[in-house]
Structures are given as C-alpha cells and as structure tokens.
Design a protein around this nucleic acid. Sequence first.
DNA 1: CTGAAAGCGCTTACAG
DNA 2: CTGAAAGCGCTTACAG
Lengths: 334, 334
Amino acid sequence: MARATIDDVAKRAGVTKSTVSHALSGKRPVSEETRRRIDEAVAELGYRPNPLAQRLATGRSGTVGFAYPIDLESASGAESSVLLAASEVISSAGFAFVLFAQPDPSAAELRRFIESGLLDGVIVAQVQMQDERVRALCAAAASFVMMGRTADNSGLSFVDVDIDGAVEAAVEHLVDLGHQRIAFLHEEAFATAAASRALQAYERACARRRMRLITPACLQSASGGRVATKGLLEHQPEISALVLSSDAMALGAYAAAVDLGRRVPDDLSLVCLAKSQLSALAGVELTYADLRYADQAQLAAAMLLEILGESAAGDRQVLLEPLWSGGESTAPLR
Amino acid sequence: MARATIDDVAKRAGVTKSTVSHALSGKRPVSEETRRRIDEAVAELGYRPNPLAQRLATGRSGTVGFAYPIDLESASGAESSVLLAASEVISSAGFAFVLFAQPDPSAAELRRFIESGLLDGVIVAQVQMQDERVRALCAAAASFVMMGRTADNSGLSFVDVDIDGAVEAAVEHLVDLGHQRIAFLHEEAFATAAASRALQAYERACARRRMRLITPACLQSASGGRVATKGLLEHQPEISALVLSSDAMALGAYAAAVDLGRRVPDDLSLVCLAKSQLSALAGVELTYADLRYADQAQLAAAMLLEILGESAAGDRQVLLEPLWSGGESTAPLR
DNA sequence: CTGAAAGCGCTTACAG
DNA sequence: CTGAAAGCGCTTACAG
C-alpha cells in the first residue's frame, strides 16, 4: 500500500487537511476532541509528513551542508571525529547532513546546492585566508558558520582555536628550556588559514627572541616528517628542537631522530600542534597541543542551528584555547 | 531579485511552462525556433529548475545515502578515502551525498529517511553477518548496494573483497616459511562480516594444517596491538608469526616486538590484512594485503547508480581480489 | 476553533 | 509540435 498522505488522515479524522496540518505543527489551537481523532488517524495510518512537500511549501530544506575538503595524503583518524561530531549535532536536530568532501576550489558544487535552495545552512571547514566558498556563501546570503576563520571575519560567524597562542606557547616553552635553534616544519600544499597563522606566529616569536627562522617545508605525513627531519638535521645538526604541525609528521620526525642516533627528548625536543594518538608508540609520550577539532565541529554545528532557529543576524565568534598534553618529548638543551 | 521559475521562462519565451519543461528535459520534440527562444530566456534569467519541486513532482529525490558507521577508536585515514571515493562517484552523477556516520544499531535514522522518500538509494558499508540496516532496506524495498556482504546474500547486490582468500594466502605463506605457531589477532567489539569471515578462514586454515588456534582479542588500535602482542609473546614465546587485521595494530605489534627485543622479520613475522601506510616507519616494509576499500566504495557507488538508472531487478555481486604488497616483514622460521 | 482555497515549482498524461 | 489542466503533498493567509 502506498504511503498515507495528509488527506488520508483528514478524511479518516473527519476534518480538513488544514486542521490536520495545524494540529501537527501546533501553529493553531485545535480542540481536544479533534486533536484526539487526528492523533488516532495518524497512528492507525502510520502517517508521517512528506518532507519534500513540506520543503516545497515552506521553502526550508531541512538540510545542512558540511564543506570539508579531505586531503587524502594527510588524512588520519581526525577527520572521522570531526565528521561524527558535526553529524551528531546536526542529525539529532532533525536535519539531514550532506557532506562535501571533494576538494572543490571554485566552490561550484556548493554554490549549486545553495542556489537550488537545497541547503538551509552550511558549515565550512578547512577555511583559507581568502576562501572562495566563504565568498560564494556571502554572495548568496546563505547562513553558515566557519570552522577556522578567514583573514577578515567581520560579520562572519566562526569557531576556531587560538593557534597563534599555541605556537607562541610552544616556542616560549622551548626557549625556557634553553633551545635557540628551533625549527618549524610546515606543510605548504594544503594552505589553510590555521597553517599560515601558525607559521606567522612562529616567525613573530622568533623575531622577538632574535632567533633564526628555520622553516623547512614538509609533507603532511609520517614519511614526509621523516624525510624532512632527516634532511634538516643532517645539514644543521645544531637544531635542538622541532615544532611540528601533525601527529603523523611527529611520528616521522621521531623515526628520523632514531635513524640519526639522536634520542628524544635528550638529543631532540619535539612539540606537536595536534593531538597525538600514535606518539605513544614512538617510545615517548609526545608533548602536544590538542587543537580540539571535534569540539570545534560540535560547537560550529550548534552555532549554525542557533542561527537557523533565530534567523537573527549578528556574528558569533568563538576562539577555543588549545589543550596541552603533559608529554615528555621536550627536555632542557644539553 | 527572487529566483526565476519555469513560469518566468515560459512568459519570456512566449510559450507555456509545459513546453519549457519538455524542452529542458528533452522528453518531447520541440521546434528549433521555440527551443532557441527558450534557451535564450533561460540564459537571460539564469533559470535553473528547483530540485525540490522536481522531486515532489517526480517522486525521485536525487539523493543517495551512505550508511557508514565510523568507530572512533579505530578510525584511521582509510575512512576518508572510502568517503571520498563514494562521494566522488555519487556527486559527479548529480546526486546529493548524505552521510550516516553515526553508529545506529537499530537503523532508525536510515529507516526514517527511506520511508520519507528522501533517498533514492543507499550504500551500506561495514556490513555485518546479520545486518539490521539491510533488513530495513529490504523491508522498504529500497535500492541499495552493500560494501561487504551478509551471511545470506541471495537477491542482494554487493561489492566485497575475498577476505577468506587473503587469510588463507597469509597462512599458507607463513607455513611455507616453516612457521607453525601463527597467531591471529582479532578485534571483537566491532563485528563486521569481514572480520568474522577472516577469523573463520584462519580457523579453517589451521585445521587443515593441524595447527593450534591462537586467537587473542585485540583492540583495533596501535596501543591495542602493542598490549596484545606483548602479552601474547610473553606467555607464548614460541609464537613466530602474527596475522593482524589493521595497520595500527601492526604498528603496535612491531613496537611490542621491539620492546621484547625481537626483530622483525628475523624473530617475528608479521602479515597485515589491510593496506599499511604507517609501517614504513616501523623500520620494515610490512607485508600486507590491500583490501581495496576505496575501490570497493567506488564500485559500489557505480553499481548503485546503474541500479537506479535501470530500475531493473537482479542482484549484482562483485568479489575483488586483495592486492598483496611486496613487503619484507616475513622470513623463514629460524 | 475550523474550512475552503491558493500556492510552493515542477512534471506529465490528455487533447489538439 | 504545443497548450490547458491536474497533480505531487504539504503550508498558510483569508474567512467565518
């Protein structure tokens, strides 16, 4: 048998569909008796409104998009926790969760969806300083929240982590331990705003301390970290500390240290700007700053839902503090 | 200005909207001249059909669901490649890609979507021997394709990998090298059909060779692999080879071997039933069987699109062969 | 508190 | 080759 429609319910309850609609939405008072009959009919027929029809009538799609380009080269378990955190919040609010994982520099796909009215709102992750997707969303006057932030965020809503603070804290910590040759390994290809903020913060910290900038490029992977670290330390053995931007990189750096006969932390200090799961294997507990990606995703999703609920303007901006681990991969310079 | 509708186009082109509709869909011949005028109007107004209205009128939603419960404890980069592979195929066919990543044993969420007519088809991953989601999809007569397969697959469509063959090949290989004490580390908590097939295949292979079963449970993580392997080898040092079911586990096993002063592969052979990215770090190239998850996802997505296109019945079943690496983590028994 | 009707923006038999 | 009309299944002013 086909699905029951609102008309079936109306007939069975002996009312019109407009009354059924109002009884269900609660947007208009309905007498006790009528409501009872309608509830009964709904139950008997197993009626549930067709969302498509509701969407067409109301103009709201009940769908939230998550623009989260995933870079396969550097993918780790972290992406999954971000996805789960966001989808959990979105789904339990009754919205569908549409993922845009494909890297899409021109934001064409996203634009297509927005313009089709298929999305009530969007969460944008992996935000760049100048972000095409953000531009498109603004142009379309769409509701959206960023995970991360662009160069100019006036009027925009975001959840981000204070990466500047994390980097400065890392460098300060190493300097306090006596280190003067501190390298910052950074990924060049996949340039998020967070990555470039981190690099700039490192440069500022070094300038303040009058330390030499050492910023080798490094692929965002374990083998990338290994290769880059090996090359670096072979040419500049005086380097005594490394700041790294991912778990995998850090594991690679550790492997390189072993290759070169240097021990961590005695002969080389490591600080990682990302929560580390793998490091336990490396023999030392890595000192790291958890950038709380899952928290960011959860908060961004909740923020978007608020915005959708209120349709009030006004930007909402949240900057999370990173969480430092009590690791043991740093030691005083010998 | 508001979005142009089909009526706007019709007026501007001096025809009715039914002609516009047919011109656009090509479902009815339209004169050269009329078509030109319509195309012009479409271009001038920047008209694009409202998908919501199309869906309501046609009953097709233009959306594909991906039921892919992600277990955070064991998440690695592999999930991302699966997501990307599936979403790539689905998106480029013009369908929206809705992710159901939340573990949802009762399949309530999925059922809700299916029954709402919000999904044209579904890809089901992490299939279990008895799968609630598959039952729900069958009951709803929904179009779907499995990544993996249940116990009884008659009439069902799937893409899976020959895990049985992979396990048997692994054991054969080790036996050929002289090993007689071969353990199979398996994850108990997250019981996919592939996991239990692997275990059974190991048991069959051992039975055939009259070897003792050694099947310790092991958490699907690096530290899980380390703990399990350490415990195992301390109590049964005569074990000379391990078959592991994930990259992370294998890395943990390697670390445990190092802890115990055993070298890989001389003092311990390792075979991994999953493509390994991390193993390079462990100092040896791991011998592994790539179970081709991304290939599975891509093929499953393509298969679903075919099914949706043809609306023809008939099961489609594909069993992929695993791809063996030329690793060096196995050696003859000493 | 309830109904009759228009409307959301399309598609698709039915006529001509 | 084209038009007039009904229909997809809802919501929501407008009346009463």
